[in-house]
């Protein structure tokens, strides 16, 4: 009775991450191509981003915006606060946050797509914002010290994270006591069959 009955992994995490990276590299390099989600300034308007927030944010950062909600509608970011932006993409939310927390505050954007990180860093430079930095990493292993952040924001990213429990525990690790979570994401109202969860093209499309 030594039959090997180990189950196959439900999902190849490496392949999923690579597919997501490819998709969002395209959003970075060719934002007007047309995707299965809205992008850019029209999306920001749809999600009720105010013109004031977008003032001074470089256009390349706005055009690659691909959020699904509005983390800033969930509570004010106060001057001097420390913010982590999980899945910072081309940097729009990190840069808005950097403006809100001011020179005494600090923002760390984390993303796994090098093309997005490059775009975000350039945008921060062009915006003259020195209180924001972008680090490469995964939601399940944030490159941020324990208890560093007052607020974690994220927009349209958690749904793409393979291990959501690990990501939430990691968010809890980097937040200090009473730290706030302000997230834009998606909600699925119909049951997703287990077989569908293994299809990478459904995660990215």
């Amino acid at each position: 009775m030594s039959e090997d009955v180990r189950e196959q992994p439900a999902l190849d995490i490496g392949s999923l991450r690579e597919a997501i990276r490819e998709e969002y590299a395209e959003v970075a390099s060719d934002p007007h191509k047309g995707f299965h989600f809205h992008t850019g300034r029209p999306l920001a308007r749809m999600l009720e981003y105010s013109d004031e927030w977008l003032e001074g944010i470089p256009e390349p950062s706005i055009e690659s915006f691909a959020g699904t909600g509005n983390p800033f509608s969930l509570g004010e970011l106060r001057p001097g606060e420390r913010i982590v932006d999980l899945g910072s993409g081309a940097g729009i939310d990190s840069l808005i946050a950097a403006k809100k927390v001011g020179p005494e505050g600090r923002v760390i954007g984390v993303d796994m797509t090098p093309a997005m990180l490059e775009k975000a860093r350039l945008a921060a430079k062009h915006a003259g914002l020195t209180n924001v930095e972008f680090r490469e990493g995964y939601a399940e292993a944030l490159p941020v010290d324990d208890g560093w952040a007052d607020v974690v924001i994220s927009n349209g990213v958690l749904n793409l994270v393979p291990d959501k429990t690990a990501a939430l525990l990691e968010i809890g690790r980097v937040l200090g006591p009473n730290g706030r979570l302000q997230i834009g994401d998606i909600l699925v109202q119909k049951a997703v069959p287990e077989s569908a969860k293994r299809k990478i093209d459904l995660w990215t499309g």
Binding site: F35, H36, N178, I183, G184, V188, Q189, V192
Partner: peptide
Amino acid sequence: GAPQAGSAENFGTLGINFRARKTT
């Protein structure tokens, strides 16, 4: 109305905002 058709409609997918607080 997104430029490309996706699976969002099949699953009744909505954008949401949610907040929570880490315990003290």
